[in-house]
Write a protein that binds this DNA or RNA. Structure first.
Lengths: 349, 349
DNA sequence: GCTGTGTAGTGTAACGTTTCACTACCGGGA
DNA sequence: TCCCGGTAGTGAAACGTTACACTACACAGC
């Protein structure tokens, strides 16, 4: 009601008790009588009391704020995650402080520094790479990783090995025997998990003709374009994520190669735009919302004293079958067993 | 170096001055000798001093944190904006606290409440609608709007009237005379600006056959589907944003209507995915990065005492011409002057 | 009657920073 | 000599909250 700020002292004065008692009530501590408790609560409501977080933070050392450090909000993978994290955190009364490193290690380091100055209670982090950001060790407080594991940290992510397996099963079922890999960055663990899940599933039936690494932002390197141009026997291009797959499809069609007519493509993530592209992309769907929510949950456990055990929480993924993988006819299947390059070259011209 | 936290007191003790002097040095205040200043700075660096933001906040009432309240991170419009805001804010030493209301007024209200508890220094806000969120008035501190104006607030946005005009010019140049409008929400000012810019540009040459309002998330209502089915003479569908346009194209092709063969479509925003869809979308590009950066800049001016003047900062936009608008032949142009419905019906079957 | 235990509540010292009011000293002008 | 103004620096009181160490009282058991 008043324009001035209401403090515990005001409540204490109005009810006629000490500030300690007010504090005890407000924090749900025992040793307060029923009626006193009710009176304090009522006074707080009537006066429009809002706890001063800064003062609380200074006294307790806890800010009730979380850091969320992401590589790139421009990749549609992350907004969905961020949305879930923010929503779940807010329901728990936690504020989310966002850092978007824009893919640079300096951005990541600066972000951490800022979060530490503000003494966030914990950090939910999707690491850029294996390099340890400056000053990170100085952060006292729980860190929970999302999507990308790192030795010694808790992580919440999709079961990428499962995703890779699903993709491999599908490839086989559609008659593909030789594939090319347009994997995500080599130094990102989750990119390796996707790849290894795929290659490990049917090591004999599925031959990897080549592998090229590109960024998760889908920008194709010259090496990638070259691989897409020659393909060396691959009838299916397995991409590290949807952005890469979409770029690959555009590159291929630009090259005059029909997708999936001449070569099939798969993605990973099932971002919103995968059924926009032509052909609609066959990919792996992962539950981004639940992953974000779970990350906050794990964080809350850690914040309330649960010991750090380096646990890994995995979510099931699912194959989303659309139009970018063609079922190979019997004679086509045979042809891929040959020496590859020469035959293929002929086929694609 | 030490595991324990370093305070101004520690610096004072080491240098042999009072904490006041240390504080004065650290805050660049006068009345400190050259050498003393240097000594304090050195000690601070050597001890690894980091100011305790909570204590500062309590004393000064300023947190050096900003709120960013957005309707929906899932709409690719916003991540780009958020990225720019966060980046610019961080360069100025400001932390960005994210609220994603997920399109609900309760979410928005809860978000504001949380930000106010944490006493952010200012709020950058893209309002959901004209309704005033609960408790908003109680927020003391600057509010800067992005993208969507509101009477009495500073706003940074694209020149949507210009965008509408550009679209109208283009429609005319391509020979379209009768259009249908799939506008954004009626209660959102920026949606109206886009529409009015279009309709006001060539009121005589361009006839609006119908207008249907849908959400910016691109989910088509039955009324919208109906309008797309019959079209009543419109040869061009002008959509409130790209998400709507993409949905419209999908709906139309699902209906067996060729785009742009039978009907043309335009979008607005030029999100990353507009040249993914078939046909590639003709749309209006707006400088999201600069808008976000400017919003932070305006906020900083306001934070450092600049008076509130309800100023509106407009950014130029540009037409991005792609494949979703067909150039009408002369006889086609004539045909749209007729009674419309009946003729059109025949054309589309 | 004494001790022990539990409940209800109080007083006050922190937390780390900024800021107000003040002192000490020096050099210059009258 | 005295006074004045400026520079360099100090001490201590806040800011709003929590938490520790207390007190006061009632009631039960022996």
């Amino acid at each position: 009601m008043a324009d001035t700020v209401v403090t515990v002292r005001d409540i204490a004065a109005r009810v006629g008790v000490s500030v300690t008692t007010v504090s005890n009530v407000l924090n749900g501590r025992p040793n307060v009588g029923r009626e006193t408790r009710a009176a304090v609560l009522r006074a707080a409501r009537e006066l429009g009391y809002r706890p001063n977080r800064a003062a609380q933070a200074m006294r307790t050392g806890r800010t009730r704020a979380l850091g969320l450090v992401l590589p790139d909000l421009t990749n549609p993978f992350f907004p969905e995650l961020a949305q879930a994290v923010e929503h779940t955190a807010r329901r728990a009364g936690l504020l989310v402080c966002l850092i978007d490193s824009q893919g640079t290690v300096e951005g990541e380091a600066d972000g951490f520094a800022l979060l530490m100055q503000h003494a966030v209670d914990g950090i939910i982090w999707c690491p850029l790479g294996p390099r340890q950001p400056r000053h990170l060790r100085e952060f006292r407080g729980p860190i929970v990783l999302v999507d990308r594991p790192r030795p010694g940290y808790d992580v919440v992510q999709s079961d990428y090995a499962m995703g890779g397996r699903l993709l491999a099963d599908h490839a086989l079922a559609m008659g593909h025997g030789v594939v090319g890999l347009l994997s995500g960055p080599e130094q990102i663990e989750s990119a390796r998990q996707r790849r290894d899940g795929f290659t490990g599933a049917h090591p004999r039936a599925l031959r990897v003709a080549w592998e090229v690494h590109v960024g998760f932002d889908g920008v194709l390197t010259p090496a990638a374009v070259d691989a897409l141009t020659h393909r060396r026997g691959a009838t299916l291009i397995v991409c590290g994520n949807d952005l890469i797959a979409i770029s690959a499809i555009r590159c291929l069609t630009g090259l005059g190669v029909a997708v999936p007519g001449e070569v099939s493509v798969t993605g990973f993530d099932n971002i919103r735009w995968t059924d926009l592209v032509t052909p609609r992309l066959t990919t792996i769907a992962q539950p981004l919302g639940p992953i974000g929510a779970k990350a906050v949950e794990v964080m809350r456990e850690r914040m309330s004293g649960a010991p750090h055990v380096g646990r890994r929480t995995l979510f099931d993924v699912a194959l989303v079958e659309r139009d970018s993988v063609r079922r190979l006819a019997r004679r086509e299947r045979r042809s891929v067993r040959g020496p590859g390059r020469a035959r293929l070259h002929r086929e694609t011209t």
